[in-house]
Design a protein around this nucleic acid. Sequence first.
DNA 1: TAGATTGTTAATCGATTAACAATC
DNA 2: TAGATTGTTAATCGATTAACAATC
Lengths: 212, 212
Amino acid sequence: MEYDLIKRLSQYKKILVKLKTMGFVKVFSDNLSDALGISASLVRKDFAACNLTGKRRGGYQVNELIEKLNILLGKNSEQRVIVVGCGKLGSALMNYRGFDTEQIKIVAGFDTNPQRQNPDGAIPVFPVDQLEAYIREQRIQVAILAVPEEASLQTMERLESYGIRGILNFAQVPMRSSENCNVENVNLALEVEKLFYFVNAQQTRLRIKEQA
Amino acid sequence: MEYDLIKRLSQYKKILVKLKTMGFVKVFSDNLSDALGISASLVRKDFAACNLTGKRRGGYQVNELIEKLNILLGKNSEQRVIVVGCGKLGSALMNYRGFDTEQIKIVAGFDTNPQRQNPDGAIPVFPVDQLEAYIREQRIQVAILAVPEEASLQTMERLESYGIRGILNFAQVPMRSSENCNVENVNLALEVEKLFYFVNAQQTRLRIKEQA
DNA sequence: TAGATTGTTAATCGATTAACAATC
DNA sequence: TAGATTGTTAATCGATTAACAATC
């Protein structure tokens, strides 16, 4: 999975920004490995894979790393995203504060329900039949999908055909990525299930210990 | 990561339930491997690891699998969860439809803001100072954390000290699991970042191709 | 019996870490 | 120069797959 690398790149960047505010000019692979709980080898390997070079004795330049990581992560252009499906979850995501710090900007929402539409809002919400025009005119590449389960497959296919290249999918049914369109599935129920599995497993283990 | 196994167990279960409604009585490892896009060996290995046995010629009993998977995933008792932080995201999660089908029940919310409190709602929202009493009295083990970044660390520590064993964390700062408490971090900004990385990477690749 | 599928062992693969020569 | 840190190669580890003997 190349996914882990991207995740780490993003983590490196966050730490580097913090270090910069603390006055750091250079960092060593050891510093970053400590902060992330991974080996220094992996840090160096990641950097090498991304053509981020350091000096054999002087470590890596913080400024240079941040700048290059921003380019790699596409942070130098604004990251415009639309939200399709503006029910409770969708509209919560439209106002999610966690996006602000990451140059991610929700530019519009779309919903079939006229009561949720509001073309004049701070973040406008349009009817779904304007999706295609909007995506093509504004050259939108990434969408967050928060429609009810029934509509998810059909909506996903429409988004792909309109030229969307990346989808963050909150529908209960996980979707697979296609050649043109990368899909990240966020399955909240599954995450909660994992937690209960661990809680149960832990208690079972304790019970076995007590018996022994 | 044992995480992948749990994820697959949950996926197996979902498929098996569907197959059951279609009248299936038994399944072969081949059927499940096709549905999940993994090898049949892995299916058999997963089942062996969970003491789910089949017959050398007759495959696995669908009913038996579902039942045992439900026990493993803790689905036979109701999975009660509280939501801490009932802003837009938190209250959207309280009403998230995707939990219903998985026996996950949001039993209460907690918020410091009196305007959001509503002890008599369908899902009551209490002041945060009632957290400890509620968790201990109701023996709550799992919490969803959707508080603003400033409050996340402190709230997490409180939850742990009150006996919470699993936390689904929506705060921007990822938290590490401790011995007693398992933390799953949902970092929405990171997910969106991944998508842009792929979109960019794909376009870069195309550009390079064109130049060649 | 012959055929099919499990359960399990060995092989493969990819990701991470350890080690160390190159070099600042 | 001596010492420290990178960049890279070899070793390790874990997860997945392939293969096949056991057996229904």
